[in-house]
Design a binder for these strands. Structure first.
Lengths: 225, 225
DNA sequence: GCTACTTTTCTTACATGTACAAAAACGCTC
DNA sequence: GAGCGTTTTTGTACATGTAAGAAAAGTAGC
């Protein structure tokens, strides 16, 4: 059973005194990511730069994934600024989601974290509150409002994950993917619409249409069918 | 420059004759995944079961990720059945997306593939066509229809990725995550709505609300604002 | 048969996350 | 100070994906 001390747990008096702290680990990790990107963040390098050994880190974070979660929370806490909220609740929902999206989309290294967990960073809770509250004020029951928030989160996380990974793919490897080849020689008699837009497909899918989709989703959630 | 022969390329007459084929690799990989799950699929084991060496595989698939993409396409081709399409175009959009979602959600091992690429499996193109065509028939321009399809795909992929990974997380590790702890002690004065639903949060987010969100999104995409 | 070339396979090696156990460094009790 | 329990650190080891290059096994031209 691993210890995993709380960030501000009272100092233990017993046992070997720690030479490194979780804060130190996070600070160094953040610097490495800032300077060289998340790909260069390895447990060995992190340990070396701290002046310790890889396995020592595991007494301060339970594994690399949790380290990334903590980094994201830290990033969100530093970057997320609460905007002035509009009066109309529907616009509050849109603005809260858009703000979260804007901040997350700006740091592509969060992708594994996004897939790993819900957005429960302490600093993001206020935005979740705004979304749920806005939906309730528009007439949804609290239950449906939570479901609505989930839908917004799925859409937001999916947009970031799919888009960022596709972009990284193109950057890593300029050969056309298998999927691109499939799309290139599609059969116009089977899929006439796709054949029709095939030439514009790449630029069309490269456009940033997050806001349009978000507004559509919120509209649909609030429409009384 | 790696060769990467087309699946049905004409047999080369020169060079050392291959002892294994891409088909054989895929068949064995599929069997391993079926029997023991995707976690047990390693390049070494795959090579051993084929009776070859790990690096020999790399002449038939460019890397493990592409292997998974091919597995997914193969799975989709075997599993996806085209349902009878409703007359109303809006319902066609919903049914096409729901069918794709149903098939993908049933095999959780596709998550890394979903994040890695767009849904361009040859067998799925017909469904993409149905979505784009349905949106066009409802009055969207082809460009907006493609954007609409993208939004639906973001939502669908996000739902599967977030939900599957969260489920796996809970299965792997029964300790509460850092995020859960954050949510557990939230401040009712800061986030009253969340505090209000905090008790029901877990069951609420465990519910499968994909269809509701999908309908809302489609409604919103088709609403003329 | 011999050489050149091509394609596939095999061998070796490395970077990475992390499991496991031993060792080290402290306070406590006697 | 000796022994003990606790906590942190360290050293070793393993599984994994895959890069790099050598080796093998064929064909084509002579």
């Amino acid at each position: 059973m691993r210890a995993m001390p709380q960030p501000s747990a009272p100092r233990r008096t017993t046992g070997r005194p720690p030479r490194i702290s979780r804060e130190q680990v996070l600070d160094t990790a953040r610097r490495i990511v800032d300077e060289d990107g998340v790909d260069r963040l390895t447990m060995r390098r992190l340990a070396t730069e701290i002046g310790s050994t890889p396995m020592a880190l595991y007494h301060h974070v339970s594994n690399k994934e949790e380290l990334l979660v903590l980094l994201l929370d830290d990033y969100a806490a530093r970057t997320l600024r609460r905007p002035r909220m509009p009066d109309r609740p529907r616009e509050r929902v849109v603005l809260a989601a858009a703000t979260i999206h804007e901040v997350l989309a700006a740091c592509p290294w969060i992708v594994p974290v996004l897939t790993a967990d819900d957005l429960m960073a302490a600093s993001a809770l206020w935005f979740v509150e705004q979304i749920v509250d806005g939906l309730v004020e528009c007439g949804l029951t609290p239950e449906r409002a939570v479901h609505g928030y989930r839908a917004i989160w799925y859409y937001t996380a999916g947009e970031i994950v799919v888009r960022t990974t596709a972009a990284r793919r193109r950057a890593d490897d300029d050969r056309p993917t298998y999927r691109e080849r499939v799309f290139a020689d599609l059969d116009p008699s089977e899929t006439p619409r796709l054949a029709q837009v095939a030439d514009h497909w790449a630029p069309l899918t490269a456009e940033d249409t997050y806001m349009e989709g978000l507004r559509a989703l919120v509209d649909g959630l609030l429409a009384t069918r």
